[in-house]
Amino acid sequence: MLCALIMAGGKGTRFWPLSTEEKPKQFLKLLGEDTMLQMTVNRLEKLVPIERVFIVTGKCYVDLVKEQLPKLPLSNIIIEPVGKNTAPCIALSAFHINKIYEDATIAVLPSDHLIKDEDKFLEMLSAGDEFVSKNEQSIVTIGLRPDRPETGYGYINFGDINCTINSYEVRSVNRFVEKPNLEKAKEYLEDGHFLWNGGMFIWKVANILRLISLHLENTFDVLSEIAATSEENYERVLEEKYNEVDSVSVDYAIMEKADEIYVIPGEFGWDDVGSWSAIERYQRKDEFNNVCLGNVKNIEANNNIVVSSNKPIVLVGIDNIFVVESDDMIFIGKREEMETIRELKMKI
């Protein structure tokens, strides 16, 4: 039985000032009429019913999840009291899902990625689900074929074909690679045996719990104690004990140590929408090459990026700038400086 675990606790600092700690990018409408979180859940509807969709997020974002996903059962919101990286977050969620669906297969997915070809993406998830169901101690990840030497993503070095499921290759994973410099990224692109790591994993719940007990014994023990707590005391014990888990990424804790890891290479119009340049890539431009979100009017203005949250913004005779209006500030700068916005925040 396939369940989806959507990780929605990120801070989205690269989209400041529109994205804030109180309302990060997964809860924003960056690429259409729906928020990034809503887009993620909506694309899963053909494959995973809402009662088998789980959201793991911080306590401060629970109300946003409820507001944006009113059909989601409240019991499917998994609360992480404090951010401790992806391994304990996934482990906490696995214990929770295991109580409801004991023999579940879990697809772990980010909450804020763009996927253009949704049908192909769902076909790949189904292929991964089928493979894991037959190979219960395996992990399947989805790798994206790179089309540029990207330094902002981790990579997956893949090996031989294990099998083919519905025309999708399932290949062995040689190793996971951290974000490279530009020279290395060019080498990976030319080599042809490297994929972007999109942070998407498929595994049996029993298997991920086994691997956590094997490689993160302390975290497993702490979470086992929390999971065994009665319903009336669960929140209190979770608050008291969760800080004792190990703060470590799932890539480092599990992926680099597990034996049976496979990857399905794919091309389905993926982007992690990790920076303002991603918005520029996918938003429609006007005849003067302006990207405008919200109530914006350009008069003889060219090559600008303008985001209005509430107030109307009018640009007159200005070129090559960005303007972002949020609830508490208006941020204006040179367009070429937009990718340094996270660093600029520290100076304010």
Rank of each mutant, 00 (worst) to 15 (best):
E343G: 15
G58N: 03
G12R: 03
M1E: 14
R148E: 11
S277V: 11
G152H: 10
R210K: 10
V248W: 12
L5Y: 08
D147M: 07
N166C: 05
F288T: 03
D272I: 07
Y262K: 07
K179L: 02
L216H: 10
A301R: 03
N295H: 01
R281I: 05
A94Y: 00
L5E: 12
L92E: 07
G294C: 02
V248R: 11
S224K: 08
D129A: 15
A91K: 01
N218M: 02
S138F: 02
T219D: 01
R14D: 14
S138C: 04
K297W: 04
K257T: 01
V291R: 04
F158Y: 09
L92S: 13
F268Q: 06
I305R: 01
D191E: 13
Q137F: 08
G9E: 01
L5N: 13
K347P: 05
G333I: 02
A91I: 02
V306R: 04
N174Q: 08
P149K: 00
I330T: 14
K99M: 10
R145I: 15
V273G: 06
I156R: 00
E232K: 12
A206N: 14
V245F: 05
E51Q: 09
W196F: 13
S133P: 08
A301M: 01
D251L: 05
V250C: 03
N320S: 05
F121M: 10
N174S: 02
G32W: 00
G269F: 07
E183Y: 13
S172C: 02
I208C: 15
N298V: 08
T164V: 13
N320G: 03
K334Y: 11
E240Y: 09
A185F: 04
G143V: 08
E150W: 15
A301H: 04
R210P: 04
Y153R: 06
S230V: 09
F95Q: 07
F121I: 14
I55V: 13
P73T: 12
A4M: 03
D34S: 11
N290P: 06
K257P: 05
R175K: 14
E225A: 11
I79E: 10
G198T: 14
C163L: 06
P180H: 00
P24Y: 06
V250I: 12
R148M: 13
K204Q: 06
V291D: 05
F220W: 06
Y168E: 08
F54W: 03
K29S: 14
K23V: 15
F131C: 15
L125A: 13
K71T: 09
I313C: 08
S167P: 03
D147F: 10
Y153P: 00
L189E: 05
I97F: 01
A87R: 11
S167Q: 07
L44P: 09
P110V: 08
D117G: 12
E280D: 14
K116L: 15
G128T: 12
G159I: 00
Y282G: 11
V140S: 02
I318G: 06
S93T: 12
I90S: 14
E169F: 01
R171W: 06
F27H: 10
N243P: 01
K241N: 06
T105N: 13
S275T: 08
N98A: 12
S126Y: 14
L211G: 06
S138R: 03
I299S: 14
E280C: 04
D221M: 09
D259L: 08
E240S: 10
M338H: 04
G83Y: 12
E343M: 15
